[in-house]
Design a protein around this nucleic acid. Structure first.
Length: 568
RNA sequence: CGGGGCGUAGCGCAGCUCGGUAGCGCGCCUGGUUUGGGACCAGGAUGUCGGAGGUUCAAAUCCUCUCGCCCCGACCA
């Protein structure tokens, strides 16, 4: 492809709207342009990257026995009402009415549509197992789209849905998808890690997320440094500590802590460490208020709290309601003498003694508080986020933390949807059975952004070969006859050899071409200059390492072919 | 939805405090010189100053409303 005939609007300066590396570079390299918040047009270069990823996804999905379909973007409300998600899904579901005033939505995911297909078309266990996938545009009206393609409202997703006769079959399909995902992300050249993920209140036996490891990731994962355990921090269990021998309790004493509200302020003021303090967070479930106690150096894991309470939603009590519950301003809540509120506490609290808590009185804390003696705890449980340094729940070492970008997830659905939508089949005994389902997603457009997060330098993108928009950028540095002629003939022979070339045939200065080539980030740059040509040589640069070598023009094809093959 | 910020030429920004009819850099167009890491000279084009209303002799600038975008938080199959 010729640069002169392609829209590649590179930007010399950083666009003001972008902060994140991938967002900035994808705009600057002319891959994408914003149409509205979280909604982008893919320009030729961006689309080529997407197609490469899609191609890898297709190959591996097909290989894993899934079959491709394409479902509609718009779906009727009736289907969503059947599963209750029309009401449940909330504002993320973009709804509209057609000319007949019928309710529709833009599909954020397609369990309903595919389950409807299954129940209409599949009767017998003989037709199963089935696994359908599609690569399609999804729309989720995110509360806050951000970071370019990382969290858009409209994005490209590969979603797959499996239907099995039983639990065991579903587990097999799950495993196949898990393996396929590992191959897909490896082939995309990503450094990633599958981690155990929260299954939410949907239940189900297992769920794994595939995390691309990157500083800018929105998710926190924990993993055993020398072991195999890895999980999203939302999910990671924290083992109850071995019961320590608690020191003798000292008498509960109120101390004045004027204006000290936060853990940091209080511990600094009292000259103690955060682990010697127990913080009290008040949550509302909508029906009742509960107090959750965790150590000052720990964070409440709201998912764990929800699960323990068996509710779908909890919310920190609004600051203005706190005084009504504790009798004290915000920042001085504590469990001692707290009325009308269930008290839950993390295991770590049980392993503590003589700690500091709020006194439910303005500018006052208690020191040397002890559970049971000074207040009742209804239940101790695992209620906090795992942290670096915690022992792995698999007992395979100590946990470390990392940031990740979720690019895929595999999920055992069980019969949630088949039950709601009566998706049944007849088994060998002629009995009606519910299909056991799984669903499997890959954020295709997010993969491209994640790759940029992982592969870039100050100059621009460094695409891994398998998903690069082009293998080679061809850079003739002058408009002279011999240079142009060689460029043209190399361009042809490379194309014939199946090497994807972007030919920078613009009449631009060398510096401009070099900078654009670095920005766009094809893995190989082939430079034809007057000087080198006089010695019968062209220059091959590897974008990944910056390494360059001089080769004869007639070696170009063999050299590149070898390099490309080595990578695949 | 709460907090913060920003909308001025294609892009990045100044001008707004203190009202007087819009500017800089890059890019773009023309001509010339240049040509291995974002050239130089000369000439040129480009703006509903996000939108609406108001105050005023006069509004990018002041006031009111509104729309959009970015960041932080809440939320997130």
């Amino acid at each position: 492809m010729r640069v002169s005939e392609t829209l590649i609007p590179t930007l010399r300066e950083d666009p003001g709207e972008a902060e994140t590396v991938s967002h900035r570079l994808m705009l600057r390299a002319g891959l994408i342009r914003k149409v509205a918040a979280g909604i982008y047009t893919y320009l030729p270069l961006g689309l080529r990257v997407l197609r490469k990823i899609e191609c890898i996804v297709r190959e591996e999905m097909n290989r894993a026995g899934a079959q491709e379909v394409l479902m509609p973007v718009a779906s009727p409300a009736e289907l969503w009402r059947e599963t209750g998600r029309w009401d449940f899904y909330g504002k993320e579901l973009l709804r509209f009415k057609d000319r007949h005033e019928r309710d529709f939505c833009l599909g954020p995911t397609h369990e309903e549509v595919i389950t409807d297909l299954f129940r209409r078309e599949v009767r017998s266990y003989r037709q199963m197992p089935l696994n359908f996938y599609q690569i399609q545009t999804k729309f989720r009206d995110e509360i806050r789209p951000r970071f370019g393609l990382m969290r858009g409202r409209e994005f490209i997703m590969k979603d797959a849905y499996s239907f099995d006769r039983d639990e065991a079959g579903a587990r097999l399909n799950y495993q196949k998808m898990y393996d396929a995902y590992n191959r897909i992300f490896a082939r995309c050249g990503l450094t990633f890690r599958p981690v155990e993920a929260d299954t939410g209140l949907i239940g189900g036996s297992s769920s794994h997320e595939f995390m691309v490891l990157a500083e800018t990731g929105e998710e926190t994962i924990v993993y055993a440094e020398d072991g195999t355990y890895a999980a999203n921090v939302e999910r990671a269990e924290v083992l109850p500590p071995d019961p320590p021998t608690l020191p003798a309790s000292r008498p509960l004493t109120a101390v004045s802590t004027p204006g000290r509200r936060t853990v940091e302020e209080v511990t600094k003021f009292l000259n103690i460490t955060p682990s010697q303090l127990v913080k009290t967070l008040l949550y509302s479930t909508g029906k009742e208020t509960v107090a959750v106690l965790v150590r000052g150096d720990h964070e409440v894991n709201e998912i764990k709290v929800k699960r323990l309470l068996g509710v779908t939603d909890i919310e920190l009590v609004a600051p203005e309601l706190i005084p009504g519950l504790t009798g004290a301003p915000v920042g001085f809540a504590g469990p001692v003498g707290l009325k009308k509120v269930r008290v839950l506490a993390d295991w770590a609290v049980k392993a503590s003694a003589n700690f500091v808590v709020g006194a439910n009185q303005a500018d006052t804390h208690f020191i040397d508080a002890n559970w049971e003696r000074d207040f009742n705890v209804e239940q101790f449980a695992d209620l906090r986020n795992a942290q670096a340094g915690d022992p792995s729940p698999r007992k395979d070492g100590t946990l470390k933390t990392a940031k990740g970008i979720e690019v895929g997830h595999v999920f055992m659905l069980g019969t949630k949807y088949s039950q709601a939508m009566k998706a049944t089949f007849l088994d060998a005994q002629g009995q009606e059975q519910l299909a056991v389902m799984g669903c499997y997603g890959i954020g295709v457009s997010r993969v491209s952004a994640a790759s940029v997060e992982q592969n870039h330098d100050a100059k621009g993108i460094k695409w891994p070969i398998p998903i690069a928009p082009f293998h080679v950028t061809l850079l003739p540095l002058s408009q002279s006859e011999p240079v142009t002629q060689l460029a043209e003939s190399l361009y042809r022979t490379m194309e014939q050899a199946g090497i994807e070339v972007l030919w920078d045939d613009r009449d631009e200065r060398a510096g401009v071409k070099f900078n654009d080539a670095d920005l766009i980030g094809a893995p190989f740059h082939l430079v034809i200059g007057e000087k080198g040509l006089a010695q019968g040589q062209v220059e091959l640069k590897l974008r990944q390492t910056g390494e360059t070598k001089k080769i004869a023009p007639d070696q170009v094809i063999t050299t590149l072919t070898a390099l490309l093959q080595a990578a695949s």
